[in-house]
Simulated assay, not measured.
Amino acid sequence: MSRIRAGEIRETLVTRRVSTVLSVDTKGRSFTEVTGAVSQFLATIGAGDGEVSLFCRHTSASLTIQENASPEVQLDLLTALDRLAPEHAGWVHDLEGPDDMPAHVKSVLTGIHLAIPVMSGRMALGTWQGIYLIEHRARAHRRDLVVAFVGDGG
């Protein structure tokens, strides 16, 4: 039988909203970890308790929280996404090449927004979790992520 335990309840009055744009240069179809950049943003603004959100301003790239210990996970995920949305599958939309429409499908599947609780200035990520921008296009791009913290100061 499963057992569920409640943790400490913390109440915070939201007094701040701080945002920035992170520009990420990708190397083509790949995962780029941005956890450190988001952590640095939280440290720079003196975040306390609240929530940090990330929003990808593109339709052919996306965001995910995924394992950050084994690079094989990222390789397997790229392979799985390619199987779900392969190039040359009869797509009608191909204005920017055969990877154009598959990139849009992969973005729909993985999502363009994340929200992460922040406790005492640190993201409440699990031990092996990292935040990744996924580039779905074959060639390199510069991608913009809007990062916003809502909460109190540390």
Rank of each mutant, 00 (worst) to 15 (best):
102 P>E: 15
106 K>V: 02
122 R>T: 12
74 Q>F: 05
84 L>F: 11
110 T>E: 13
107 S>P: 02
104 H>M: 02
123 M>Y: 04
63 L>S: 09
88 H>Q: 00
96 E>F: 02
84 L>Y: 05
93 H>D: 00
80 A>M: 12
89 A>E: 06
112 I>V: 14
86 P>R: 07
106 K>H: 06
84 L>K: 11
97 G>R: 08
106 K>D: 10
67 E>L: 06
114 L>C: 07
67 E>M: 09
69 A>H: 04
101 M>A: 12
115 A>E: 14
107 S>R: 07
110 T>P: 06
82 D>N: 13
97 G>E: 00
87 E>L: 07
112 I>Y: 07
125 L>S: 03
78 L>S: 03
105 V>N: 00
108 V>W: 05
117 P>L: 04
85 A>P: 05
118 V>Y: 10
70 S>H: 09
99 D>C: 05
84 L>N: 05
86 P>T: 02
99 D>Q: 14
105 V>R: 02
94 D>E: 15
117 P>A: 06
113 H>E: 12
65 I>F: 10
122 R>G: 03
86 P>D: 06
83 R>A: 14
107 S>C: 15
97 G>H: 03
124 A>G: 05
92 V>M: 02
121 G>M: 10
68 N>D: 15
124 A>F: 05
73 V>A: 12
91 W>N: 01
81 L>G: 07
87 E>M: 14
92 V>W: 02
73 V>D: 14
92 V>I: 04
108 V>A: 11
98 P>A: 03
78 L>K: 00
67 E>H: 08
114 L>D: 01
66 Q>W: 09
98 P>V: 13
119 M>P: 01
94 D>R: 11
87 E>K: 14
120 S>V: 01
82 D>T: 01
95 L>I: 04
76 D>F: 08
64 T>D: 12
113 H>T: 12
89 A>P: 00
82 D>S: 05
79 T>F: 05
125 L>M: 02
123 M>R: 12
95 L>F: 06
123 M>K: 09
123 M>N: 12
65 I>L: 13
86 P>W: 11
69 A>E: 05
63 L>G: 07
100 D>H: 11
76 D>Y: 08
76 D>H: 12
95 L>R: 11
96 E>K: 03
121 G>L: 08
83 R>E: 14
90 G>H: 03
121 G>D: 15
68 N>L: 08
82 D>I: 00
119 M>Q: 15
90 G>K: 10
108 V>N: 09
101 M>T: 04
88 H>E: 06
94 D>S: 08
65 I>P: 07
91 W>K: 03
108 V>I: 15
77 L>Y: 05
87 E>C: 11
105 V>G: 03
107 S>M: 11
64 T>G: 10
118 V>A: 06
66 Q>R: 01
103 A>F: 03
101 M>V: 12
113 H>I: 07
74 Q>W: 08
69 A>R: 11
71 P>R: 12
79 T>E: 15
66 Q>M: 12
112 I>C: 09
81 L>K: 01
71 P>M: 06
100 D>Y: 02
95 L>W: 06
92 V>R: 14
88 H>C: 01
91 W>P: 01
88 H>Y: 00
96 E>P: 07
71 P>N: 01
100 D>E: 13
97 G>M: 10
88 H>P: 00
122 R>H: 09
118 V>N: 10
70 S>F: 06
104 H>E: 03
108 V>G: 09
